[in-house]
Structures are given as C-alpha cells and as structure tokens.
Design a protein around this nucleic acid. Structure first.
Lengths: 368, 368
DNA sequence: TATATTGATTCAAACGTTTGAACAACGTTG
DNA sequence: CAACGTTGTTCAAACGTTTGAATCAATATA
C-alpha cells in the first residue's frame, strides 16, 4: 500500500495523505523556522502520517537543494591495520558532535582503490577529507585534485606539510626517546634496534630520538644490531620481519639484552623468534614495541610499548577539518603539523637485563 | 577562476566553456548510448574541458535523477572487533565487482548509534543493508522498519531467519566439534570449556557440537570445568573472562589437560591466566580458540583455533544482497540461513597431554 | 521534387526537497 | 473603512543531472 514507483515514501505521498501541500509538509517535517506558524493540529497530523508511512527524507534531494551534505570523507589506506580503528573512532566522535556524517572507505592498501574511492568521495560532495595513512603510502597526486575542488584535506599518520596539507602525527622523536630511556632506566646497555622502512615518515625521527636517548644514557647501539624493515607489503609483514631479524641477531653473535622494535607487530615477531631459540622474555631479553595495538596487549607476555594517542589524533583531525570548512576563505593551504605526545606503557616484556638483575639480587642479599 | 557559488564544477560550467548545451555535455561525459551520435571532435573537446576544470559529476543529482544509488549500507555493530574486518573486505570486494559502493558505518556497540546510522542508511537510499553483528546484539525493531521501505536486509553473524531475515553464519556445531575432535585426537580426555554468553546465538550450537564430539571420543567434560562468558561488555571482555576462568579452573583443583575457549581473545586470556600460575602452554596444558583473528596468530605460542571463513562470508553476503535487489518482486522475506564451513588451524598452543606425551616418548624409546 | 533517413544537437520535464515570496482570511487599530 | 499585523498555508523556482522527444541540417531514396 502506498508503494511509489521508487519504493520510497516521499513528501508528495504525505501531502496527498494529509490533504496539505508539499510545502507545508516539508516545513513541518524539517522543522524549519516557519513551522512555528503552522497550526499545532496540522503539525501533529502530518507527523503522525509520516511516522505511519515510515517516511525518511531523501538525503540526496535534500543535499542537492541545500547545497550542503554535512559529510566528511574518511579514507583509510588499510583498515585491517589495528592502528586505524581508534583513529576512526576519534574522528567519528568528533564529527558526530558537530552533526557531520563520516563517509568511510577502505583502500585495502591498493593504490587503484585509493584513487577510486577518492573520486567517489568527491562525487559525493564530501565537504572535507581525512586520509589515514597507516602504512607506507606514496602520495598520489589526486590529493592535489581534491584541493583543486577546494575541499579541505587532512592527513593522519604522515607528514605532508611540505605539500601544504595539514598533518597529524605522533611525536616520533619523543616516542623513540621514551622507549630507549625506559630500557636504559632498566639497566640495559646493549640494545638491538629494528627501524621502520625508509619510505615511512615515522622511521627517521623515531630513530633519531632513539639515538639521542641512547647517547644521553650511554647505551651502546652496535651497528651490526640495527635492522631495517622492508616497506613493501602490508603492516602485518612487520611480524615476519621481527622473526627474521631476531634470528639474525642471534646468528650475529653480538651481545644484546634488549630489542627495540619499530612497532608492536614487529615486537611480537621478535618475541616469537627469540622464544623459538629458547630465550625467555623478559628474563633473558627485553622486547619493546610501539603503537599499543590490541595484539600487544593480549599477548603473554604483554608487550611494553609506546602508546600513540590514536583516539585523540582522530579527534584532532575532525576538529581541524571542521574548522577549515567553517573558515569562509576558500584557501585551506595553511597545512600545519600537529604533533601529539606519546606515552610509555610498561607491561611484561621488559625487565632489568640478566647481569643487572643478578647484581641487584646480590645487592639485596648483601643487604646494601 | 571558474569558481561557482557551490565551489564545484557543474555541467553548466562545461557547457558554457565549450559552447555546447548541457544535454550534449551530459551525454558525452556519462557515456550514454546517444554519445555515439555525437561528433568525435565534440566529444574530445568536451572531455578535455571537463578534465581541465576537474569536473566530477554530482552523485546526489545523478542518483536523484536516475533513481538508483548503487549503494549498499554496511552497518558493523563494533568495527574494533578484529572479526569484522575480513568480513568487510569480503563484502567490499563482492560489491566492487558489481559496481556497487559500500556505505560503511560503525555503531561502536552503542544501540543509539546503531539506530542513528540505520536511519542515515535509509535516508541515503541504500538499495540494501548488510548488518555485521559480531558480538551480542539485541535486535532492534528498526530492522523491520528497513524492510517496510522494502530494502533487502541481510545479517552476518547472527541467525535472524526466525524474523525472516537472511542470515550468514559459520556452522558453529561443526566448528565446535572440530575443536573438540582435535583435542581428542591429541589424546586429551579431560577438557575445560569456556562457553559463549547465553545471549549470543553462536554459543549454544557450538556447545552442542563440542558435547557430541566429546561423547564420540569419550572425552570427559567435568561440569565444574564449564564456564559461561558474561555477555555484557565488548568482545575484548572475553580476554578478561579468560584470565578469570583460568584462575578458577586452577582453584577448583579438578584435573584438566586442555582448555577449549569460546573465541581467540578468551583463549589468549586463558594463556595469560595459566602462564601466570607457572603452567606452560602447550607442554602442561593445551589451549584452543575460535575465529582465527590476528592476535591469535601473532601471539607466542600461536593459538590453535577454528577459522571462520570470514572473507567468504562477506562475499556471500554481498552476493545475496545483490541478488535480492535484482529480484524484481518487492518481497525479500525469504530469509534463508547460509552456513559456512569452519576449518581447523593447528598452531602451537595445542599438543599431546603430559602423560600421553610421556607415554609416546617412552614408546618411541622402546622402539614400538 | 518531395520524402525518408541519418547525424548532430538541443528542449524541456522530471527526480524530491527547500525556501523566499505570495496569498487569503481574520482581527486590530487609527 | 482603509491600512496594517497576524496566522496558516501554498506557489513556484531552484539545486545538477538524465533522457525521451523534438529540432534541424544535410544526405539518400523514391
């Protein structure tokens, strides 16, 4: 009954059913200012009919007319990266408060999909775009195209301020230093490091922070115990890399009492590799990660790590995009870099190195 | 230059710039059948201008006119559940091949958000809806509302065929049996079981499969070693439950050589709980999970589990929704149940029980 | 020469909504 | 009684696209 050709109930249907005009119905249902002038009885009547028929305004027609979609495109480069979800959540919450709707897309690490989805976001007239670049990610020139249509863009997880695009990023240098400082505080003096892929913008500053902290604490980083993750495949590949490098560390014969891995998945790989060789974590060797994703938390031993405030980064992203939209002047080219503070999360995978522990036990025994 | 009030380039802009009418431009750019009649030079000319101005057709106007949005709403009840992602991927791929666009939403386990987003999906005139009900999830009557607008609905992860809604689900009974059979094959005869929350539709059939397999293999399930996960909070709460129940198992003093957990997170919790008590996995006790999510794979020891063919479930969901859309007759009330086959994934957390292992070692030593 | 046929392009209406302007009816007020 | 305010409602145009029908040359057919 009442089935229109389109299968959806429209204002016209309600107008006919109520005996009022489409205008009146629209005014009532959209709660326009004019609706104060509409008789209370009429309002109630129209609303009742709308509910009965299951009316939902057509977002397409409405946006077309209003010339605003209240929509922000969110393009994740790889949604399967656990890293993305809390960011998404933050963005969602930030947008929700402002009455904006997220239009999420997942490029599945495929460049072609990324471009496709970016097109779709444009065609759907999103008023802003947030890109979550969790993993290695070559900038596509399409992003420029987006700005040609003067839609503000923002990127989380990569620094594109050089291209004038606002970027949100954890303070990698501080984070790297935090991690190394923690190991140094525990008494470690020889630490193996697995750095991120060179193509990834996090890698270099994080390494630099590690080095500075190491220098401050007189920790030795043997160049033979420094490894670089290849940046080819997906983030989960860090796990494989961790296993491989753990074996290489052992094979090298160089001494080390702790491993500082580029991220949590890599750390988990290291744990696997060392464990297979009979090394106990953390009794024989400490392992640290970075990011604080779910797998690091639920593993046993739970991985000590440096947390990125992902949710906050998402919130900040939402806030900044909305701000850019509200700003009337069309040029959003004031791409700023927004760094967020990392936080040390001490769990079970780090402890004092074997000798130090022996010493401290001895000291305690001596009563010193 | 060329900046319209809306900030977006329209057909009219291109018409003016090219000297042709809006109709011609539309016909050319949308590659309508009529475009074969348009002079080759004209086509090239128009296309060049479109590219130069960065034209993207307005999806809203287009859908309004065409009366089709080529969109499927995907509503995840909790996107942070690692379970969801592969399903999402499957759906995405299935839709992509058919030229449909996914409209993803994440209800963040909040009922109110779920309802909101369902509204939005309706307002955006999605031609179908797929719900991913990863965790405990009370059916909202809104789903009925969706069908009132004769939009086909499909649910993954919950059986709503009773309400006439097509459902896609792993064969939980077979999966439960597979898990128990594996433990029995290894030689286990006393197994502790952590069942899912009662509110969850997976729990009961999985338990039934476990019992049948146990009976077949003469495995004893001591009622004192059967636990029920509470269904209150989010999926990650399974981890906490696992820890707690592991402690209870030990406290009970009853003998067991293996634990069959409801899902992978719970299994990881059990591993944590047992490890803290000094029990080695799998040497002293085996632990099995269910689902096969990332954390189970990267933990050490890696968790033996029963894999749900999540991607395939997503693909099936996409296929079925598209089928329902294409079917002209408006009544999609033929909700069928589609069960998919689970698969055993043997990893490191299961092994023969201590005695059996001793026996088999002894046997090998004797050369039998 | 009149009439189809074809090729190239345009007209105009429609999709469902919003909204400034208009209208009608009914007091008030000067 | 004319001018004005209210109150309640409707008109009609617009948003950017698509598309069946119409237009208009130019060429082919009868």
């Amino acid at each position: 009954m009442g089935q229109r050709k389109s299968g959806h109930v429209t204002l016209l249907d309600i107008a006919r059913a109520s005996g009022f005009s489409v205008s009146t119905v629209s005014i009532v249902l959209s709660e326009a200012p004019l609706s104060q002038n509409v008789a209370v009885s009429t309002r109630a009547h129209i609303r009742a009919i709308a509910r009965r028929l299951g009316y939902h305004p057509d977002a397409y027609a409405r946006s077309l007319r209003r010339r605003s979609t209240q929509t922000i495109g969110i393009l994740a480069f790889d949604l399967s990266d656990p890293f993305c979800i809390p960011i998404m959540r933050g963005i969602q919450d930030g947008l929700h408060d402002a009455g904006y709707l997220p239009l999420m897309m997942d490029a599945q690490t495929e460049r072609k999909l990324f471009d496709n989805y970016l097109h779709m976001i444009l065609e759907r007239r999103a008023e802003g775009v947030i890109v979550i670049a969790s993993w290695v990610f070559e900038e596509t020139n399409l992003l420029g195209d987006v700005r040609k249509n003067n839609v503000p863009v923002l990127i989380v997880g990569r620094d594109l301020t050089a291209r004038g695009i606002g970027s949100i990023l954890v303070d990698n240098e501080a984070g790297g230093a935090l991690a190394m400082q923690h190991l140094a505080d525990l008494g470690h003096r020889s630490v193996a490091v697995i750095r991120g892929p060179q193509e990834m913008c996090d890698s270099e500053p994080r390494w630099s922070g590690i080095q500075k902290a190491a220098a401050r604490a007189a920790v030795k980083i043997d160049p033979a115990l420094v490894f670089d993750l290849p940046g080819l495949a997906d983030p989960a590949s860090g796990f494989e890399g961790g296993i491989r490098f753990a074996r290489q560390m052992l094979a090298s014969g160089k001494p080390f009492t702790a491993v500082l891995a580029f991220d949590d998945l890599t750390a988990l790989g290291v744990v696997r590799g060392l464990t297979e060789a009979g090394i106990r974590i953390p009794a024989d060797c400490s392992v640290m990660g970075f990011d604080d994703v779910l797998p690091a938390e639920v593993a046993t031993p739970a991985i000590t790590t440096v947390r990125q405030p992902l949710r906050d980064m998402g919130l900040a992203a939402a806030r900044q995009v909305l701000e850019a939209i509200r700003k009337p002047g069309g040029n959003h080219h004031d791409g700023r870099l927004h760094q967020t503070a990392p936080e040390l999360v001490v769990r079970m995978s780090t402890a004092a190195p074997p000798q130090a522990r022996a010493q401290s036990l001895a000291r305690r025994a001596r009563g010193t």
